[in-house]
């Protein structure tokens, strides 16, 4: 039973003081850190007053021209993009087959999706490092291992999104109908299945991308030589010793990565019309299929 449709009629009362305090407080709490980081990225010197002493673009210029920052951004984007693509390629066929052919695939997927959902990434990363060291020492500590790790922890988001889209489209019936009309398996997938689940694939890809983009524990554990934006930022925080500009440059980089996540979640929310958002296996869909 789907519960995502929120009721439109409501026992509503006048905005009370408590309500104003609650939402005003939350609004300030969510907004202040964003404002602070943006101001920091433009501030010349800011150690004594409420607002910065002056504003400058220097930190932005120095962040953009810094080769370490640019490289880290490149690596982060490549890693996140490959993660999303790999998840599409691996999850879509499995989800489709679990619906039209073999329900036992679904059981396997749903049980394993609980692993990255409940187990901390640092634990998965450590276990994977150990296991890879035993069976495939060649890729221990390399980018490919990290990519596999990110693909694995992001796969549930892709699965919930794609499976929800398949359920909404009634993919089993569509496939049967196409088969009855004499379509070849290739035609069915190309002309019937894929066009109907594009929204799910896009949502899933955005969420996989976002998962990989900000992830820290696995990058730090699995691939020592790989520098992503979170790794670079953590290094900056650790090595900070009051030198002018380091904090401000870090602020500029944080603003950019924040904007990326902002745009990604904006698209996901917009596409789902403000309904289900992080595609968690929330109360609404614990029984049956997720709502995408």
């Amino acid at each position: 039973m789907a519960l995502t449709a929120l009721p439109r009629t409501l026992p509503r009362s006048r905005p009370s003081l408590g309500r104003v305090l609650l939402f005003g407080g939350l609004f300030g709490y969510f907004l202040l850190p964003m404002v602070a980081v943006v101001l920091y990225s433009f501030a010349t010197r800011w150690t004594a007053n409420i607002l910065p002493d002056g504003y400058t673009l220097d930190w932005w210029i120095s962040a953009v021209t810094d080769s370490a920052v640019r490289e880290a951004f490149g690596t982060t984007l490549i890693l996140a993009t490959l993660t999303a693509l790999l998840d599409i390629v691996l999850v879509v066929p499995a989800a489709y087959w679990s619906r039209v052919r073999n329900r036992r695939i679904r059981t396997f997927i749903e049980v394993s999706a609980a692993i990255p959902f409940a187990l901390p990434y640092i634990v998965i990363a450590f276990g994977l490092l150990q296991f890879a060291g035993i069976v495939t020492p060649g890729i221990q500590g390399t980018f490919p291992l990290l990519l596999l790790g990110h693909t694995a922890i992001a796969f549930p988001f892709m699965y919930w999104a794609v499976d929800g889209a398949m359920s909404a489209a009634g993919i089993e019936r569509l496939s049967e109908a196409a088969e009855a009309c004499g379509a070849s398996p290739y035609q069915i997938i190309r002309r019937v299945v894929l066009p109907n689940i594009v929204p799910g694939i896009v949502s899933g890809a955005l969420l996989s991308f976002a998962t990989s983009f900000g992830e820290f524990a696995m990058v730090q554990t699995l691939a020592r030589g790989v520098y992503t934006i979170p790794i670079w930022s953590a290094g900056e925080i650790r090595s900070y010793s009051g030198d002018a500009g380091a904090f401000n440059r870090l602020a500029a980089v944080t603003v950019v990565s924040f904007l990326v996540l902002f745009v990604l979640s904006g698209i996901v929310v917009y596409r789902n019309r403000g309904q289900i958002v992080r595609l968690l296996p929330s109360v609404a869909n614990s029984e049956g299929r997720p709502t995408a």
């Binding site: 850190p33 980081v37 900000g214 992830e215 925080i237 602020a251 944080t254 929310v269 958002v277």
Partner: peptide
């Protein structure tokens, strides 16, 4: 929902730095 979704996705090192910029020794 939009605001909450953005905040929910903002974690890790970026959030740690934002905290320092807000309530650190020279936070806003």
């Amino acid at each position: 929902m939009g605001l909450l979704n953005v905040a929910a996705n903002f974690g890790g090192i970026g959030l740690a730095f934002s905290y320092l910029a807000t309530l650190g020794v020279v936070g806003m």
